[in-house]
């Protein structure tokens, strides 16, 4: 079975941007999927499963991330991640 490749743009809406805690939540959800996940911003691409790599994107509220998933559960991965970003990472002080 061929792996799917999917890509989606996500806009960060939480107040403080991609700091340690949201990065951790993003990496945690990404790691639950077997697909390889890459996040790109301004030409800089990093692994979506690494909390530290995500920090290097310097993404702030309003930044647009291109998230690419490659693997058997690519679609589910993107949906879960988009939902997380959409919910502002469920962080109560960043809504």
């Amino acid at each position: 079975m061929a792996d799917e490749v999917q890509e989606m743009e996500m806009t960060l809406r939480n107040k403080y941007g991609m700091h340690v805690r949201p990065a951790g939540l993003f990496a945690k959800i990404a790691s639950r999927h077997s697909s390889a996940i890459t996040v790109t911003k301004d030409g800089n691409s990093v692994s979506g499963k690494s909390i530290m790599a995500l920090l290097t994107l310097e993404a702030v509220c309003g930044s647009v991330l291109t998230v690419r998933a490659e693997g058997p559960d690519a679609e589910a991965a993107l949906q879960d991640l988009a939902a997380l970003v959409e919910r502002k990472f469920d962080l109560p002080d960043e809504q």
């Binding site: 340690v20 990065a23 951790g24 990496a27 945690k28 692994s47 690494s50 909390i51 530290m52 790599a53």
Partner: peptide, 12 residues
């Protein structure tokens, strides 16, 4: 939990 993930992060 995020701190823990940072400590165990492969890139780090």
């Amino acid at each position: 939990e995020a701190h823990l993930m940072a400590l165990e992060d492969e890139l780090f």
